[in-house]
Amino acid sequence: MSTLAYAIPLSLFGGYIIVSTVLFRFPTLIHLKKKSKFNAKLIAHRGGAAENFENTITAFKHARSIGMEMLELDCQITKDKQIVVSHDDHLSRASGGDALIQDTNYEDLPTMCCPLAVTFTNGGMCTSESSDRHIPLLSEVFKEFKDFPINLDIKRNDEELINGVLDLIKEYKRETITVVGNFDSKIGDKVHKKAPEIPLLFGLTSIFKLFLLTYSGLLPFVPLKESYLEIPTGTLVKDLEWTQNSSTAMKTALRLYDFLFIRPFLFRHLQRRGIKIYLWVLNSEREWSRAISLGVDGIMTDYPSKLKDFCDAKGFSTSSDPLLENRH
């Protein structure tokens, strides 16, 4: 085979590598940078599930009062088509009930257990003295926190649930300060199709595609509809009780995930495109320190008071007003 036969493909491959590298560093040469209407570094997971009963109005108020800049919450739909704020569809864990929320009318929903296990802390229990153990309506939350950024996880691929959430977001004029999605990319796709103006989370399929695009060098060339990448760290997941006795293969997979995906070079590229990076659910100073060192945009926690104190001491904080309406 002639030298020319080798030279042409090598030249093409070399040109591809150079262009990909340049665009990875300067993505706005071909992509319009996304603009967010708010800046949230401190995010209360379920309102701060370790300090107050998760997803309650009391938890959300407490988180806001101590300086959290965003609330994370989850939505379900009841039998009588009410959109409620709850992580689990089944009532057993949070309320001790033996029924699904989707099979229960809103007025029949039980109150939450006390104490209540904190999902992302081994052995952690919420023993708040608050009497508020009520599962709220999403409309109640939107009324109380009308100008406050909210990260909203639609927990089921249900048309009535998806449409109900989007209708409420539009009714309360929250299109620019509500981030919506789920790990199920089908839910995100439906949200984006129905309301493309609402900021979207990366789903699991989109995250996998992001990984493939990154390590093939194609990422700089591909447009992304999502505006927020919210992922756990491998170190967080391996510390949870359900992975303590996991196989060597699982532990290896977690280390590999962390090594390949929790990478500052990837985060910087996405941030240059205006995509925010949030890590969850980080409940220790070790994880908070790591997140800050990685240069993420926000940290999601069950311990908002502790996170606020830690971040104030480290200088990882924002202004008292997270809204950026007048800065764009």
Rank of each mutant, 00 (worst) to 15 (best):
L152E: 03
M125K: 09
V141G: 14
E226V: 09
L91H: 09
L219F: 10
L138A: 00
N163G: 04
D189M: 06
L161R: 02
Q82T: 01
K314T: 08
N157G: 10
S92V: 12
R263T: 02
E197C: 10
I299L: 03
W280K: 03
A117L: 14
T121I: 14
M1K: 08
I299D: 01
L282K: 07
L32T: 15
S11W: 01
N157S: 11
G14P: 12
L210D: 11
R263N: 14
T176Y: 06
K276C: 03
K186S: 12
T233M: 14
N52Y: 08
V84I: 06
D258H: 15
L168A: 09
I77R: 02
H62R: 05
P9E: 02
E171A: 12
E285P: 10
R263L: 13
I177E: 10
S130Q: 10
L204Y: 11
F265Q: 11
D189S: 05
T243E: 12
P27Y: 05
V141R: 11
L240E: 11
G315M: 08
K209C: 07
I277P: 08
G188E: 05
S185G: 06
Y257G: 00
E54Q: 06
N182D: 09
S92Y: 10
T119P: 07
L236T: 04
L323G: 03
E171N: 13
L307Q: 05
A195V: 10
G124Y: 03
V85T: 00
N55H: 06
I207C: 10
I207H: 04
S131I: 02
E230F: 15
F259P: 02
N245Q: 15
P223N: 06
T233N: 15
V19H: 06
S293E: 08
K314E: 13
